[in-house]
Simulated assay, not measured.
Amino acid sequence: MQPPSGPQPVRISSAPGRLEATVPLLESVRDAVGDVPALLALARSVGRTAPRPGDGDTAHLWELLASVTAVDVAAGRVLEPHLDAVAILAQAGAIAREGSGTARAATGVVPAAVPEAADGAWGVFAAEGPGLRLEASPDGAGGYVLDGSKPWCSLAAQLDGAVLTAHLAGGNSGDAGTGARAAFAVKLRDPGVSCETPQWSSRGLREIPSGTVHFEGVRAVPVGGPGWYFERPGFAWGGMGVAACWLGGAVAVARDFGSALAKAAEGGREPDQVALAHLGETDRIIAALTGYLARTAARIDAGDLSGSGAWSEALRVRGAVAAAVERIQAMVAQNLGPGPLAFNEPYGKRMADLSLYIRQHHAMRDDAQLGALTLKGDRSW
Rank of each mutant, 00 (worst) to 15 (best):
P37Q: 12
A38F: 05
L39R: 02
A41K: 12
L42S: 01
A43T: 08
A43M: 10
R44A: 13
R44S: 11
R48F: 02
A50L: 06
P51S: 08
R52G: 12
P53R: 01
P53K: 00
G54S: 09
G54L: 01
G54K: 01
D55R: 02
D57W: 05
E63S: 11
L65M: 13
L65G: 01
S67Y: 10
V68G: 02
T69V: 06
T69C: 13
V71D: 01
V73F: 03
G76M: 05
E80G: 02
P81M: 09
H82N: 08
L83C: 11
D84H: 01
A85G: 08
Q91M: 00
A92Q: 03
A92T: 04
G93I: 05
A94I: 00
A94P: 00
I95C: 06
A96Y: 05
A96Q: 07
R97S: 14
E98I: 07
E98M: 13
G101C: 02
G101R: 14
A105Y: 10
A106H: 12
T107M: 15
T107I: 13
T107C: 15
G108E: 09
V110Y: 11
A112E: 15
A112P: 04
V114S: 02
P115G: 09
A117K: 06
A118L: 09
D119V: 03
D119E: 15
W122R: 09
G123T: 08
V124Q: 04
E128H: 12
E128W: 09
G129S: 13
G131T: 14
G131D: 12
L132G: 07
R133F: 00
L134Y: 08
L134K: 07
E135Y: 00
E135D: 13
E135Q: 11
S137K: 10
S137R: 15
S137D: 11
P138T: 08
D139K: 06
D139H: 07
G140Y: 06
G140N: 06
A141S: 14
A141E: 14
A141C: 06
V145Q: 05
L146C: 07
L146G: 03
S149F: 04
P151H: 10
A156Y: 08
A157L: 01
A157C: 00
Q158I: 00
G161P: 13
T165D: 02
H167W: 07
H167T: 14
L168I: 13
A169G: 06
A169Q: 12
A169L: 11
G170F: 13
